[in-house]
Design a protein around this nucleic acid. Sequence first.
DNA 1: GTCTATAAAAGGATAGAC
DNA 2: GTCTATCCTTTTATAGAC
Lengths: 235, 235
Amino acid sequence: MMTTAEADKDDCQKPSRREMRRRAMLDAANALFLEKGYGATSLTDIVKHSGGSLATLYELFGGKEGLFRSIVEEGCAEFFSFLNDMDAGQPSHDILRVVAQRFIEGVLADDGAFLRLVISEAGQFPEIGMAFYSAGPANAIRIIGNYLAGQSGRGTFEIDDTEAAADTFISMLLYDLQMRLLCRIPGKPTRRQIEKHVDHVVDTFLKLYAPSSHSTGPRQAPKAPGGSRKSRDVK
Amino acid sequence: MMTTAEADKDDCQKPSRREMRRRAMLDAANALFLEKGYGATSLTDIVKHSGGSLATLYELFGGKEGLFRSIVEEGCAEFFSFLNDMDAGQPSHDILRVVAQRFIEGVLADDGAFLRLVISEAGQFPEIGMAFYSAGPANAIRIIGNYLAGQSGRGTFEIDDTEAAADTFISMLLYDLQMRLLCRIPGKPTRRQIEKHVDHVVDTFLKLYAPSSHSTGPRQAPKAPGGSRKSRDVK
DNA sequence: GTCTATAAAAGGATAGAC
DNA sequence: GTCTATCCTTTTATAGAC
C-alpha cells in the first residue's frame, strides 16, 4: 500500500481527485462557453456536464469569472501552439505554403468559436483580449517577420519592413475567411478551395517580395478564367 | 390651439408619441448593447435610460430579441452607408486612397463595437451574422471589385480576378486594425499613422496591379529605415 | 473536500389600473 | 396606449451535512 503522497510521486500524471474534477469542469465549461457564449452558459449547466457540484466549482475557481479566465488562459496557449513549430532553417519559400496551410487549419479547427468568445468578452474582461492578441496575431506577425528577415538576409526575399510584409501575408490569408467564420456564414471551404487560396496568397506575396524578375514563383498557374467560384454571396 | 391629430398632419416628421418612444428605446438599447453586450444589458436598464416602461417596450418590440433585431437591422444599413457613395467615374487611382481612408474612418468610428456585437450574438441569432456579412464585407468586395473591373477595362489596372484583388485590398487595409479593435487593444492610431498605413496599402496594391513598370505609384516614399514604429506589442 | 439544499438577487414577461 | 406593480423563472453564491 502507498500513501497518496507516495502515489503522487510514483505516478507522474498525478490524477488526484481534485485535478480530475478540475479538468472535467474546465472541459465542460470550455465546450459550453464556446458553443453558447459566456452569458448564455450557466454554472449549473456546466456542473451537469462535468459531474461534481456547484460548491466544488466555487472551491476550485472562485466563481464564473475565475473559471472563464482559466479557460481563456489555456485556450490561448493551445490555440497558438502551432506557431512555435516554425522552422526557420528551411531551404526555400515553399515553407510559406506550409505555414499558410497550418494557419488556415488552425483557424478552421474550431470554426472561430474561441476567437468569437474572446471578442465577445473582451469588453467585460479587458485583459483577455490583450492576452489573446499578444499570444496570437502579434506573436504570429513577429515570428513570420523574423523568418522573413532571416530569409531576406539570404536573398530569398527583398523586403525592407518585414513585419509589415508579415502583416500583409497574414491579412490576405485570413481576413475574409475569419470574417465569414465569425459571422457564422455556413459552409466550410473545401480542401481544394483552401489549397487554391493558399496558392493565390503565396503567389501574390512572391510577386511583391521575390527578388525582381528572378521569377521565383514556381506556380504562376494560368488561371481558368471565370472558374474562380468563391461564392462570396450568402444567399 | 391644435388637436394632436392636427399637429401630426401639420408636422411632416410626424413625431407621434409612439414613434418618439420607439426612437428613444432604440437609441438607449443601441448604446447599452454596444457598450455592455446583449447578455449583460437588461430591459429594465434600457427603460431606465429611454423613459417609458417595460410594458411599452414589449408592446413595441415584442421582447428583448425583437428589440435586438431592430437594432442590428438599423445598424447594418447605417454602418455601411458610406459604401454607396463610391463614385466609379473618378479619373485616377487616387480614389483608392479616398476609399481606404473612408473604410478606416468607418471602422474606427465606433471602436468596433457594432461588429463585436454582431459577432457575439451571431451564434444565438443565425440570420444576424449573415445579414451583416452581406451588407458589409461581401458588399464591399463586390463594389470595389466592380470598380476595379471598370478601371481594368480602361487600362488603369491589370487584374484578372477583380474580386480577389478587392479582397486583398480590404484585407491588407483592415485586418490588423480590426483585430486590435475587437480585442480591445487600447490606443487608437493617430491620423498620421492611418495616413501612412493607407499609403502603404495603396502602394502595395499598385505594385501588384498597376500596368507593368508603367510605375504609376506617385508615392513610393523612401521609408526612413527603422522609423516604422507600429508598436504591435501590447505591453 | 465533496455534496445537498437553499438563500438572495435579478431578469424577463404580464395583468390590470388609468 | 401607457404606466405600476407583480409573478415566475433562472442564476449566482453559500451554509451546513456527510
